[in-house]
């Protein structure tokens, strides 16, 4: 028997996605288009799988990121917190082509965290008195009402990180981190798309954002599009 933590580095996206099959539940990191594992997202389309349940905060936008999965008919169900201006999802939800489960963002995150931490369900105040409580157990604890929310595990997590060592220890960059580290804990197989791949020892143990224990495969992808969703700026004052 071999452990799952030998030889994690794969030399291609296709090899990194080995075993990802139709009908699986797949988590994909990113807050909208920020922090997407762009090559892995393309790789899943190239694989030709169908009927995935996609767990991601937004499921793409502006035809980019995970919106490409919607257009390629890869997905049968989306679990997300916010659709916003994602017309690819709005149209498919309206036609019934894709089922959409909308969850409060913090509950979505905590459901993943729970799955990764061996907690089958938890009580949260979020959603009490709203449509979110439909069909859920409600309990009063110390005078306040809470909803029982269940852990959300996945077959695969596809995430992106800035710096990754060959054991899979990793560091994120700015707000590209978002859901990625918790998805990594919740999935049976976690695949990381690394902006930079370094040898073990290159990241100080105290500087590791997520232990390589949660990472099973690593693929080095140095180039990314990193599209803007809303590019906002201010004018530089004279002389600065």
């Amino acid at each position: 028997m071999t452990g799952r933590h030998h030889h994690k580095v794969r030399d291609s996206v296709a090899a990194a996605l080995d075993g990802l099959e139709s009908g699986m539940t797949v988590m994909v990191g990113g807050f909208g288009l920020c922090g997407n594992a762009e090559a892995l997202i393309r790789g899943v389309i190239d694989k030709g799988v169908k009927d995935l349940t996609l767990v991601s905060n937004n499921a793409g936008n502006l035809g980019k990121g995970l919106a490409t999965w919607l257009r390629a008919d890869v997905v049968k169900k989306v679990i997300c917190s916010y659709l916003g201006t994602n017309e690819d999802l709005h149209s498919r939800m309206a036609s019934g082509a894709i089922a959409v489960e909308v969850t409060p963002q913090g509950t979505l995150a905590e459901r993943m965290r729970a799955a990764g931490a061996g907690i089958p369900a938890f009580f949260t105040p979020t959603g009490v008195g709203t449509v979110v409580e439909q069909g859920k157990e409600k309990r009063t604890i110390d005078g306040r009402e809470y909803l029982l929310e269940r852990a959300l595990p996945a077959d695969f997590a596809l995430i992106r990180a800035r710096t990754v060592d060959t054991f899979g220890n990793l560091r994120f960059y700015r707000t590209a981190r978002n859901f990625s580290p918790i998805m990594a804990t919740a999935a049976r197989t976690t695949v990381v798309e690394a902006d930079r791949l370094v040898d073990v020892g290159a990241i100080d143990p105290d500087d590791v954002h997520l232990s390589g224990l949660y990472v099973h495969r690593v693929v080095h992808v140095p180039e990314h599009e990193d599209p803007f969703e809303y590019k906002t700026s201010r004018k530089r004052p004279e002389g600065k």
Binding site: L33, C34, L108, A109, F172, R174, T175, P181, I182, Y230
Partner: peptide
Amino acid sequence: EDPQLINAGKQTVTVLPGGSTFDSA
């Protein structure tokens, strides 16, 4: 503008000295 440094409205922002980043949970 940095596409990987955004606010919850997905607009590009900056981080001030003393700022920190963390995951969604």
